[in-house]
Simulated assay, not measured.
Amino acid sequence: MYAQLRAKGPVHRIHVPESGDCWLVVTRDAARAALTDPRLRNDIAYSSSWRTDGGHAIGRNMLQSDPPQHTRLRRLVASHFTAGRVTALHPRIEALADGLLAALPSSGTVDIVSRYALPLPVSVICEIMGVPASAHGTFHTFSNELVLPTSPEAGAAASAQLEACIRELIAQKAAAPDGTLLSDLAQAAAQPDSLTPQELSGMVFLLLVAGHETTVSLISAAMYALLTHPEQLALLRADPALLAPTVEEALRFHTPVHATAFRFAAAPLDLSGTPIAAGDSVLVSLAAASRDPLHFTAPDRFDIRRQQVSHLGFGHGLHHCLGAPLARAETAIALRRLLAHHATIELATDPAALTWRTSTLLRSLTDLPVRLARRRGTTA
């Protein structure tokens, strides 16, 4: 569908269930232009007709804000996700990955999503934030329902339950600071002109949810792409230097975040030849842009040796994904440790039988059954 739309033009009028009519951007040039146009704002107050975009976000977060509020909020947490801070986390991420792999059977069929791709990033972001291990599973259940709701009612219920959990965690950290990111945010909120209670809840919600959902999707999709392209898997096994390019190609080929948060036109503008009226809603498809044939040779081919993979998998501009370094590191480590641990990994089902959970925001596998054979000398 994206390919058909791109062939007809860069911007199209569509209807999004539970939200409404909006403009969809599907080419890479138009996407970059939209993501850097200051007239397209993230604050829904600029919408002429919408009061909600159909989601169940908690509090007030960076994705719903524009400068100077966005700048202030991002500055509060940006230092925790720098390349240097993420590099320092590598040993811990590796230890968590190895622990999960050791718990897998030495051979047989395993769901790599529930046993590996999911618990790894959940554990990492929860440890960074300071969420107790006992709450990891509950937190993800609510998060998953929020991001890919089974129904509007279920999404609303999950939002209320997760908000209650977040408020309880904030209260605990405020009463007993422990040096974790959530604790630091709770302390910052106690300072004048720092964080409002609504912004604090929104910040915790965004970091916890965005801090793992996309990475779960990315690890799963990267492994799926390798398993359905065995020649590419063989290349990676033969040359570990292809690990980073593999992550980038997976981001391009199976873009986890299909589209950005909605933008709203604060003033009339021309977007790649399409007039956008003030108050109109705009959705930028990162997935469509990352397969634009004008920028990628044979865009529907998964190629880990592809040169200059300038995709938009993590967005672009002011709202470029804050956690991109962490997501890249977790995915690279997850793939490297899994391949090192198992001599044989094969898809255990017909690819057509797999289920992809979809929304305007995310696309992810519900499960990924694989057959494993452990390397000789590796212990459980």
Rank of each mutant, 00 (worst) to 15 (best):
Q187Y: 07
L185I: 02
Q187R: 13
G202M: 11
L195N: 06
Q187A: 12
D193C: 12
L286Q: 04
G273F: 02
F296W: 01
L243M: 15
V282E: 00
L251E: 13
H295M: 07
S281C: 12
S220K: 14
A266R: 05
V216R: 01
D193G: 06
S194N: 01
P256S: 05
E199G: 08
A188K: 12
L227I: 14
S290E: 00
L169R: 06
S194D: 05
T297Q: 08
A244F: 10
V284N: 02
S201Y: 00
P293M: 06
I276M: 02
G211I: 09
A287M: 05
L169D: 02
A225E: 14
L169K: 05
D303P: 10
Y224G: 02
L243W: 08
A186P: 08
M223D: 15
V247Q: 06
D300N: 02
L242Q: 11
P299R: 02
V216E: 05
L207I: 13
L269W: 03
A189H: 14
F262P: 04
T260C: 05
A190N: 04
E199A: 09
L243K: 11
P177N: 00
T274V: 10
P240D: 15
A259W: 04
A210V: 02
Q307A: 15
F296H: 03
A244Q: 15
F262Q: 10
T228I: 15
D280A: 11
A190R: 13
D300F: 01
S220H: 09
G179I: 01
A176H: 13
L227V: 14
I276G: 01
M203N: 05
A234G: 08
G211D: 11
H254Y: 09
P240K: 13
A238G: 15
S272L: 04
S201C: 10
L236C: 13
G273I: 01
E199C: 10
I304L: 10
T246P: 14
T260G: 07
D184Q: 11
A222N: 10
P197L: 07
V257M: 12
G179E: 05
L251M: 14
S194C: 11
V216H: 09
D303R: 07
T246V: 07
L195E: 04
A261G: 12
A190G: 13
I276A: 06
Q187I: 06
D239N: 14
L283S: 00
I276W: 02
S290D: 09
K173F: 04
I219T: 15
L236V: 15
H258Y: 00
